[in-house]
Each structure stands twice: as structure tokens, then as C-alpha cells.
């Protein structure tokens, strides 16, 4: 039963990798990489139980930590480097982008 779950997670990893390769925008690739990281955590956990050594869960914890920090770091790089303007994302004048209200009340500073 662990083998079936591990196989399903492997198939899902392949599909997410395909989306990471053919995603039209850079945000699709970031989303796919995030999903690959989550599925890798699941795969490591299931493989630890499959081989009868649940000590693999330490590696899964480390992978979950690194995945989140890596995604946030890539997002910062894309937003503030010149990486976002080179893909298929067309830049919109800032008045057109509808933003969520930042805090309560005072939004204009």
C-alpha cells in the first residue's frame, strides 16, 4: 500500500515537472516547483515507511523547511530583479493592477 502511494506521488511529481517545463509564465514554474517540493516531502515520508526506516522523516522535515524558504527567496528575486519582465508577463501600468487593501484604513502613503 505504501508502494501504491509512492507510485501515485511519483506520477504527480512527473506531471508537476511537466508543468514546470512548459509553464508559460515564471509564476507557473514557481508554483510547479513549490508543488514538486511538497510532493517530495510526501515521497520521502512514504519511502521511509516503505523501506521500514521511518528515520527518513528528518530529511522530510528539512526538505519542507528548505522548500518554503526557497520559494519565498525565488519570489523576492523575481519581483525585485529584472527577471519578471523578461518572460511572457506583460507589464501593466500600476494604476491598472488592483491591489488588496494593505492595512485597515490608511492605504495612501
Amino acid at each position: 500500500m505504501f508502494a501504491v502511494t509512492a507510485f501515485a506521488v511519483l506520477i504527480a511529481l512527473g506531471i508537476a515537472l511537466a508543468r514546470a517545463f512548459l509553464g508559460p509564465t515564471v509564476f507557473d514554474r514557481i508554483l510547479a516547483v513549490n508543488s514538486v517540493g511538497t510532493k517530495t516531502v510526501l515521497l520521502i515520508a512514504v519511502l521511509g515507511f516503505l523501506t521500514g526506516r521511518p528515520d527518513f522523516l528528518d530529511i522530510a522535515i528539512v526538505y519542507a523547511l528548505i522548500n518554503f524558504i526557497g520559494v519565498v527567496a525565488i519570489l523576492k528575486y523575481v519581483q525585485y530583479g529584472d527577471f519578471a519582465l523578461s518572460g511572457n508577463v506583460e507589464p501593466v501600468p500600476p494604476g491598472n493592477v488592483e491591489r488588496a487593501p494593505q492595512g485597515d484604513g490608511e492605504g495612501g502613503q
Binding site: 509564476f27 514557481i30 508554483l31 519570489l75 519581483q79 519578471a84 508577463v89 506583460e90 507589464p91 491591489r99
Partner: peptide, 11 residues
């Protein structure tokens, strides 16, 4: 964070 970054980039 991903959705906000995409929205801020104009997608």
C-alpha cells in the same frame, strides 16, 4: 505570496 507576486507583476 505567489499569487500576490503575479498580481503585482501585472499578470
Amino acid at each position: 505570496a505567489t499569487a500576490r507576486a503575479a498580481l503585482a507583476a501585472g499578470l
